[in-house]
């Protein structure tokens, strides 16, 4: 029985190490701060949680288990609070998620540009990379919003 809990704890520790490294690679490689928050959530919940639960199984029932549980509870409460605070401060500072303006082209939330909007677009207006900053009044509102959407999907 003792060996089974030791082996189970070892397996959980190996899985937790894997998730911890995955989260750190995400923090290193993701393109902006909001996607990095997602990766930090992986290493804070899956990585740390599996490592601590695995250590609990290895330690058996003692005071060490209680201390590990306290660390786990503190991490599980503090990690979402810290992520929320970072996101709120970043949005307050004016950072925008780089994926916010991209259209979702696949999946249940997909809303691709309809065919009639594609046919309606005028070639010189859609050349601009930042169509929303053009002075108002040149085109009608509907055509301008269509051009803005097309420009965003292209970029």
């Amino acid at each position: 029985m003792a060996e089974i809990s030791q082996i189970f704890g070892a397996v959980l520790i190996v899985m937790g190490s894997f998730f911890f490294v995955v989260g750190a690679v995400g923090i290193f490689r993701m393109p902006d701060v909001f996607t990095r928050m997602h990766a930090a959530g992986i290493s804070d919940t899956a990585g740390a949680g599996l490592l601590l639960v695995g250590m609990m199984f290895v330690a058996g029932l003692s005071l060490v288990t209680v201390k590990l549980a306290v660390i786990l509870v503190v991490i599980l409460y503090s990690s979402p609070i810290a992520t929320h605070a970072v996101a709120q401060a970043a949005l307050h500072a004016g950072l925008e998620p780089i994926l916010a303006n991209k259209k979702i082209m696949v999946g249940p939330g997909a809303h691709p540009v309809p065919e009639k909007d594609k046919a309606k677009k005028a070639p010189p207006q859609t050349k601009s990379r930042t169509p929303t900053r053009r002075p108002a009044g040149k085109t009608s509102g509907k055509a301008r919003s269509t051009a803005a959407r097309k420009g965003r999907t292209r970029s």
Binding site: A24, A40, I75, S79, T83, V86, A89, A90
Partner: peptide, 14 residues
């Protein structure tokens, strides 16, 4: 940005 550093600091703490 400073928020990347804060986030990385939080992960370093964990």
């Amino acid at each position: 940005t400073v928020f990347d550093r804060v986030l990385a600091g939080n992960s370093i703490g964990t």
